[in-house]
């Protein structure tokens, strides 16, 4: 596995060993970013974790919001998981772009994996898991 490491990657290392996943054979960089500079979609209760601020360099990321009710929103448009790849294809046609997931912290793990699998099938190589910083003590 030729993962390039990113900050705090260790927290998510176990993704690597889920059975899903031939898809994981592909280069997949998963990192955690903080939320503040992302556009607001539907309100989701983001997990709290300290992470690096976003880099403004590179291709513009695609933001997917995953609500507690397991709705996937592309921008503010809900997209069914089975239709997600069709909606992403034109956005990825111009070359690779990172995808940021704003997932509710109460989401079932399996659902998140389903989304990751779809993204990986689409050839997405960089996935950002969006968090908010932990409360300052």
């Amino acid at each position: 596995m030729a993962f390039r490491t990113a900050d705090d990657f260790d927290n998510l290392a176990e993704i690597n060993i889920t059975p899903l996943v031939d898809v994981m054979m592909v280069l997949l960089i998963i990192f955690i970013v903080t939320a503040p500079m992302l556009v607001q979609g539907l309100q989701v209760d983001l997990p709290r974790a300290s992470a690096a601020a976003l880099s403004q360099k590179g291709p513009e990321p695609i933001v997917l919001t995953l609500t507690r009710d397991r709705l996937i929103l592309l921008g503010d448009q809900p997209v069914h998981l089975k239709l997600l790849s069709g909606k992403l294809a034109p956005l990825l046609a111009g070359g690779p772009r990172p995808v940021y997931l704003k997932g509710d912290q109460a989401l079932p793990y399996g659902f998140v994996i389903d989304v990751l699998a779809t993204l990986n099938r689409m050839g997405v190589e960089e996935i950002g898991m969006v968090t908010v910083p932990p409360p300052t003590p």
Binding site: G41, V63, L74, G75, Q77
Partner: peptide
């Protein structure tokens, strides 16, 4: 975010 804008335009 242009993605969001694009979608909004399509919907419109």
């Amino acid at each position: 975010m242009s993605t969001a804008k694009q979608l909004a335009v399509l919907t419109l």
